[in-house]
């Protein structure tokens, strides 16, 4: 890796911050519906989004790790997996677009 020490520390620190937010803070997120959800519910078209779905195989539906119930643990683990997955995929795509220079 052609990254200097400070950059590596910054990346590690920011990743740890993201993981902290996703694992330990997300269980305390507001359970209220979002604007769209609330409007859809009030106007009676929320079912339209629920009765038909193009993709039913999501491994972690609704940010709750299957098998861990609905509580803080399920949310925290979902956050951990999701954050690492997004980091890995984002990094991989960036490397694919911008391969390391040969120097």
């Amino acid at each position: 890796m052609g990254l200097d020490r400070n950059t590596k520390i910054f990346i590690l620190g920011a990743l740890l911050l993201s993981l902290f937010l996703a694992i330990f803070i997300s269980p305390f997120a507001s359970p209220f519906p979002t604007g769209l959800e609330r409007v859809a519910e009030d106007q009676g078209f929320l079912e339209k989004g629920e009765e038909w779905s193009a993709w039913k195989l999501a491994p972690i539906p609704d940010y709750a790790m299957p098998g861990l119930g609905e509580g803080a643990l399920a949310t925290g683990v979902a956050g951990l997996v999701g954050t690492l997955a997004v980091f890995a995929i984002g990094y991989a795509i960036a490397l694919f677009i911008k391969p390391k220079s040969k120097s």
């Binding site: 052609g2 990254l3 200097d4 950059t7 990346i11 920011a14 990743l15 911050l17 993201s18 993981l19 937010l21 996703a22 803070i25 997300s26 997120a29 507001s30 359970p31 209220f32 519906p33 979002t34 604007g35 959800e37 609330r38 940010y63 949310t75 956050g79 999701g82 954050t83 690492l84 997004v86 980091f87 890995a88 995929i89 984002g90 990094y91 991989a92 795509i93 960036a94 490397l95 911008k98 390391k100 220079s101």
Partner: peptide, 30 residues
């Protein structure tokens, strides 16, 4: 080249931050 990891990092941070719904008004969140 040194911004390459930042792309993944920013995505990861945004994913984490998007999980943090906060109450907005009248029983909704954002």
């Amino acid at each position: 080249e040194r911004q390459v990891p930042l792309l993944g990092l920013t995505a990861a941070f945004i994913f984490a931050a998007q999980m943090l719904n906060f109450p907005v008004v009248g029983g909704t969140s954002g």
